[in-house]
Design a binder for these strands. Structure first.
Lengths: 234, 234
DNA sequence: ACTCCGTATCTACGATGTAGACTTTACTCG
DNA sequence: CGAGTAAAGTCTACATCGTAGATACGGAGT
């Protein structure tokens, strides 16, 4: 397992690998946003010619997919958890935390699949779907019902994350709420309600908001499905 | 109202305006996607120098914001509807239809707000928020509660739309389900559940799925809030 | 007739993704 | 030990993009 590659004197030319490349890419995106991640920049950061990157990602789009994958791989799911609702809750909070830790990656997570058909996506991004299906089937759902639950759940979860990130703050230093959110720019006659809500907007507690939504949704789904199951046989 | 500008012989130099520019931009995006919308292309399409566009949008980002706005303006909301749940349902279906009609714009709707603080967004994109808040307050909610309802509702709605668009089909001509979704590429051992669900995935009925989710969410929200109201006085 | 100003155009620059030819490196086999 | 090979890395070059800045145009007001 010890790689005798790092020979040339003092790690002068450490060997580079897909993992290293993607990790550095994520680092750049986290620090400076998606636009900062150019091939030239990434090459420089790694001390290599930009063109060398094409050994590890077919093109820039593939590189971005790799970054998505890298983040989603940090989400771990336990498909054997007997308490499916609790497991879904944990997954939701974990994903939320991931999103908060890598906000600049979220547009990728949300946007890339829109231009890539299901079957052609990076496997890492499909794994959560497969695992959640497993979880639900193990919990006794018909596969097709599991799919419906998954959709409602994952849709809500992504929606929440987008919502929460969207409300993020302009200038945390500013202590006048209206200003902190930039709301002072809005014409007061057209947006009375929004402006009045400045304080409420400022103290958004994403975790509990997510949790309450999940409670509603999950128990609702459970009820709906047991009703269906009772009606159609068994 | 009759503009005497269209003088030079036969509409040779029709006057150009923000509306015309944005409409053509949307047309390009709808037909060929976001990447096809370059300043040069849009200029060409309008028979004008690309640089003239900068009179009507400060830069490309602002142009994209304009396109978002143009689409969202087509969503009309009736804040005085006495039946708030029914109104929210209508809005949801309208937005869904808009998204299906302009799928290439959806990434904009979802992504641009992430990099623009609330107060600095194009007013057109904030109007739905204001109007839905109005609707909820008119229906008897405390403003702060209305905000919570809005968040859960809009989050779910956006999530659903993303979900639905993501599942769209590779090649509708192909009549083998596995192939139509590109699922044949997935390793069978790692993704058994997903592959088995190919038929179910293929006959996704977005409208009813959205509707069922809304039913659950809205009645859940209503229940939760009336409980809260009862507890905290009156 | 002359100025002025909103509008449109022209030219030019720096940055980006990436194709294609070339060079370097590390390792294998006779 | 030396020739050969395949992979990894580099160099050069190009088309395309957003847009800054200078310039031209054309009708309204004096």
């Amino acid at each position: 397992m010890a790689s005798p590659k790092t020979v040339t004197t003092a790690g002068r030319k450490a060997p580079l690998s897909r993992e290293v490349v993607l990790a550095k890419a994520l680092e750049i995106v986290d620090a400076e946003g998606l636009d900062a991640l150019t091939m030239r920049r990434l090459g420089m950061e790694l001390g290599r010619d930009p063109m060398s990157l094409y050994r590890y990602a077919e093109n820039r789009a593939a590189l971005l997919d790799g970054v998505s994958e890298l983040v989603l791989n940090q989400l771990n799911i336990h498909p054997e958890d007997p308490d499916w609702k609790e497991q879904l809750r944990k997954i939701a909070h974990n994903l939320r935390m991931l999103a908060l830790r890598h906000p600049n990656v979220v547009p990728l997570l949300v946007t890339r699949p829109l231009s890539t058909p299901l079957g052609l996506r990076p496997l890492g991004t499909l794994r959560p779907l497969e695992q959640i299906l497993s979880l639900l089937v193990a919990a006794g759902f018909e596969p097709a019902d599991g799919l419906h639950v998954y959709r409602a759940y994952y849709g809500f979860l992504y929606g929440h994350i987008l919502n929460e990130l969207q409300e993020y703050v302009v200038d945390p230093e500013e202590n006048e709420v209206l200003l902190r959110l930039g709301l002072h720019r809005l014409p007061a006659k057209e947006f009375p309600k929004l402006r009045a809500l400045a304080p409420a907007l400022a103290e958004y507690d994403g975790a509990t908001e997510l949790d309450q939504g999940l409670t509603i949704l999950l128990s609702g789904l459970e009820a709906q499905l047991s009703r269906q199951a009772a009606r159609s046989g068994r």
